[in-house]
Design a protein around this nucleic acid. Structure first.
Length: 414
RNA sequence: GGACAGUUGGGUGAGUUGGCUGAAACCACACCCCUGCUAAGGGUGCAUAUCCUAACGGGUAUCGAGGGUUCGAAUCCCUCACUGUCCGCCA
């Protein structure tokens, strides 16, 4: 959630920032006035309640001294009626404010380029040159079929479309990648965690998936639980409603989880192959950082993800997302896009974001700075998306006969 | 799933004949003093959120969550959640 006081005191600045994300002034004006209404309603309620509390105290004294309480009781009863109305008004103001506030995206950093969509993202650099093939490289689904690696049909039978089954070497390679990613992250100082794959609504709200993106989530019937769309949710919310000590920062965490997404807005996109599935494996990095040092942590995370791709000898490029392509919670996002020779294009394989204090405010993650509590910064990033790495390996390591060479660094995991 | 017990501040843990307890005590933590060496002692501060104030300070809310009784609830009642133990089932 954005800082409402900042919105109140620096409206024009705030509005300018959110324009990058396509939020209009009207919405912000409404938010600002809801905030003002809440403050007003609260003030009225609280002062009335203060009077009541005052009288209640007197009540005790009167009784002890044996005074007549009839008149006092009449007064306090009248006050109570007044309070009931004020309290209800304050509650409504609160509900109205948060209903809107929770749907407002984070402010983009000033360094985020302007732009509408992914076409306006800015490439920062390329790492490793795409390899040239002396034959026409195949796409991963052709290779999957040739090698019997992915069983799309039976995945659909077991669940529904956009589910698939990895078989044999592919399943082993998937597992090898998970281990390789986790080991690498651990060596960089990330603590490895194994977390629940179902999280409750409060946690999903903490990281920003709820209330606005409920349609993208798989929900468990009759339970207040959702399948996680990313390990960012459990890892970040590990410290939900907690106050850390300053010396614990930064908290660096990594974990492997499957991720579940309805891909509701992506009907028709990437229907062929394994690029966009309802369930995919991912190894995630999450950092809880001191707010003054989150930029360094961010750089480190980008570097780490890039290093992993380099170790796998996979050509990739590093792209900074423009305002229009930035996710809801992110202040800044850098994507790593891996080269897919079969598709002849770069495709996203990692997305690393600094959410600044946006998630911290929602999830109430703070740290003690001296005597005061201050919101932390939270960051998350894939290192890496496992299924897409598998695809990248298939396409980049393919041989003319359709066989696939196992990358050197993975051999010890196979 | 059944039975019983519990849920208080960073931790342990008092408080359950309703008001003087937002919360004793101890531990941890921070700062200061003394002392001096593989220690110890003394002092002060220390829940969260929010509002008012230049500040001092004060208001409001929160003792698992929500609701109720009452002038007034951590304390009484109801519902739910969670934890523990025993039983059942189970990887």
């Amino acid at each position: 959630m954005i800082d409402l006081k900042y919105l109140q005191n620096h409206f024009d600045e705030a509005a300018m920032k959110l324009r990058k994300k396509g939020i209009g002034n009207d919405t912000l004006q409404e938010l600002k006035s809801l905030f003002a209404s809440l403050k007003e309603a609260n003030a009225a309620f609280e002062s009335a309640r203060a009077e009541q509390n005052q009288m209640s105290k007197l009540f005790g004294e009167y009784k002890r001294e044996g005074k007549d309480i009839a008149e006092l009781k009449a007064r306090v009863d009248a006050k109570k009626e007044e309070i009931a109305v004020l309290q209800e008004a304050a509650r409504e103001a609160d509900a109205a404010l948060y209903k809107l506030a929770l749907t407002i995206p984070n402010f983009p950093d000033d360094t985020v380029p302007e732009g509408e969509d992914e076409n306006d993202n800015v490439e920062l650099k390329k790492v490793l040159e795409p390899k040239t093939f002396d034959f026409k490289p195949k796409e991963h689904w052709e290779l999957a079929e040739l090698n019997g690696w992915i069983d799309f049909e039976r995945g659909v039978k077991l669940a529904k479309s956009r589910f698939s089954v990895l078989r044999g070497e592919a399943a082993r390679l998937e597992r090898a990648l998970i281990n390789f990613f986790l080991d690498t992250n651990r060596e960089k100082g990330f603590e490895e965690l194994c977390v629940p794959f179902l999280n409750n609504a409060a946690m999903l709200q903490g990281t920003g998936q709820l209330p606005k993106f409920e349609d993208d989530l798989f929900k468990i019937e009759d339970e207040n639980l959702y399948l996680i769309p990313t390990a960012e949710v459990p890892l970040t919310n590990l410290y939900n409603d907690e106050i850390l000590s300053e010396k614990e920062l930064p908290v660096l965490m990594t974990g492997y989880t499957p991720c579940f997404r309805k891909e509701a807005g992506s009907a028709g996109r990437d229907t062929r192959g394994m690029i966009r599935q309802h369930q995919f494996d991912k190894v995630e990095m999450v950092a809880i950082s001191h707010p003054d040092r989150s930029d360094e942590v961010f750089e480190m995370m980008v570097q780490n993800a890039s290093d992993i791709l380099t170790a796998l000898e996979l050509p990739h490029r590093i792209v900074v997302l423009c305002g229009g392509d930035l996710g809801f919670s992110a202040a800044k996002t850098i994507d790593l896009e891996v080269w897919l020779p079969g598709q002849n294009q770069y495709r996203e394989i990692s997305s690393i974001s600094n959410t600044r204090d946006f998630q911290a405010r929602r999830a109430k993650i703070r740290f003690k700075e001296g005597k005061k509590n201050r919101l932390v910064h939270t960051l998350n990033g894939s290192a890496l998306a496992v299924g897409r790495t598998l695809i990248a390996i298939m396409e980049n390591y393919q041989n003319e006969d359709g066989s696939i060479t196992i990358p050197e660094v993975l051999k010890k995991y196979m």
